[in-house]
Structures are given as C-alpha cells and as structure tokens.
Amino acid sequence: MKPFAYVKPADVAGAVRAVSDEPGAKFLGGGTNLVDLMREGVERPDTVVDVTGLPLDTVDQLPGGGLRIGAMVRNSSLAADERVRARYPMLSQAILAGASAQLRNMATVGGNLLQRTRCPYFYDPAAACNKREPGGGCDALGGFNRSHAVLGVSGSCIAAHPSDMCVALAALDAVIEVESVRGTRRIPMTGFHRLPGDTPEIETELAPDELVTAVELPPAPFAARSRYRKVRDRASYAFALVSVAAALEVRDGAVTAARLALGGLAAKPWRAHEAERILLGGPASEESFARAAEAELAGADVRPGNAFKVHLARATIVATLRELNTGKGTA
C-alpha cells in the first residue's frame, strides 16, 4: 500500500476543506471497498480523510412523508430501520441481499453509492483496464465476461455496477445531497452515475472534492408494495447476475404506478424507464409484463459469456411483477 496521511475531521466543513486543499485526497467511510482497493494498488490516495466521525449518521423524517438518510448511516442500520422496512421494503431487501453481515455493519450509505465495480480485470494490475488506466484497453471484452454488463456498455468498458442498494435508490427516485467548499447541491439518483462511454474512469457526476452528505427518499406510498429480487450463484454473499427492484400499484386490473430498476445488468444502477412507460396504464397481465421486459432489454449488447443475462433478466422481471401483482411468491 502506498504511504498516505490520515486525517479525521469532526465536521463537514473541515472534511470538504481537507479534500479541497489536497488533490490526491480521498474520503474514507466504512473502508469495505477503498481499503481493499488501496491494498491492491488500484486506489493510491496521498491523504485519506476519514468521514466516519461526521454527524451524518441519522435517518430523519421529512415533512410530507419522505426520509433523509445521513451518508454515514451504516447499511445494516438502514436496512433495519422500521420506516424503511414499512414504506420502502425494496430498499431494506436490497441492502440485506448485498455483501455479508459484517460488511453491512461497516459499509456506509455514502460509500455504497461510490463503490467501484468488481470486474476482475479492474482489480488485476496485470490486466488491461480502461477504468484503472484510461486508454489501456479492456481485457473483459474478449475475456471471461459472465458477470459483466449488457446495458449501457461501451467499447471501452463492460463492467457491471455492483451495488444492490443503488438499484432500489434508482427505482425510488432518491436524491443525493453533496457538499463542497462551493456549497451544497442535489443530484437525482438516476443521473448520479455515468455510463462509461469513452471515459469509464469517471463513474459519477461528483467532483473529486464533493462529499455525499445525505440521500433523500421522496414519499412514495405505492412503494410499500415493493420487492427486490436478486439472482446470484449462491444463496448469499455473491454479487448479482441479475437483480430487479420493483414497485407496482394496480387498480381494477390496470397498472396505476410502476417502478422498475435493474442491477447486475448495466454499467450503472439501471432505471427501466422504457419498461415503466409500457406498464403504466396497461393491464396488469403476464403479457404486458413480458412486453415491458423485452422493450427494456431490446438494446442489450451481449458477449458470449453474458448473453444468458437477457433471458434471465426477462424471467426475473416478469416473476417479480407477477409476485407484486398477485401477492404470491413464484418458483
């Protein structure tokens, strides 16, 4: 690991100043991704600004029924929050589907938003990776790409976004609050992460000196009936091959509200706008669910290793919507 300086500011102003003064600085949250990447030599900060002491560790009620989640709230605490479990069950389920119990105890909400891909070529300094070394090429394109993305990919990068939590946040229209020495701004979750294009090393809209301070969930009464379904190689403790965050409201057989986002499939947490457009106002039927899934997946750009994901995603989307519609689990 490259030597670095460690500072632990007590307030947000001190934290953003520390990073603004030092271009080679990085914020450190729970450490479950950054420390790992520093050990591998993929991340090489000169200064680590530990933000776990900042007073951003509460979940607060917002007027109008939303919730404001401090960026330092631990993943396990957020998943256990009674308000999240009752009003946004997909979010609690998504968090509990990720990592292991001890990692969820450490990982922060802000850190989860900024975690980096688990593409094995990104982690391997001997492999070509445009994300790690811009312009260096991509060994995943012709390599072992079973876990890689099929939506939003480019000729530079096919890495999948690894987060479960972010998929639910995308479906729920969360808003990310960030702060820097220039002040505070708010970024919609669906626009927070960037697609790789020709610059896969730039993953979010955050400037290097901006700190995530909170995530706001707008009120969403229909989300009380929502579900996160994750398909993976093991029953627990594995990244998603495909995951679906969905909420569905049906009146008199017609869909009156629908939210759908996909994980494991795309370069960023993928809000399925096209599928939602088809679902909304249409019949709550198997045919309509399948049509919505197919429309969303029509643009899939597959490789031999990950072509199976399109079929798996279609089946998982339909099964999740069916389950929400009938209230019954499916095989």
Partner: peptide, 29 residues
C-alpha cells in the same frame, strides 16, 4: 484474506462485529 471476504479477523468495534482487516488503525482511536 485482508479483503473483508473471509471473516477470520472479526472483532466487536463499539459492540458491532466488523472485519478488523478493513478498519484503518486511526479509525480505532
């Protein structure tokens, strides 16, 4: 593993089980 993957290094930190390999020394202060 030194990556938080295996759980061999677990300790309670302020009463919560964590992987001690991923906690920077300064964070224990």
């Amino acid at each position: 593993c030194e990556q938080g993957e295996c759980g061999s290094c677990m300790v309670y930190l302020d009463g919560v089980p964590v992987c001690a390999c991923l906690v920077a020394a300064g964070q224990a202060e």
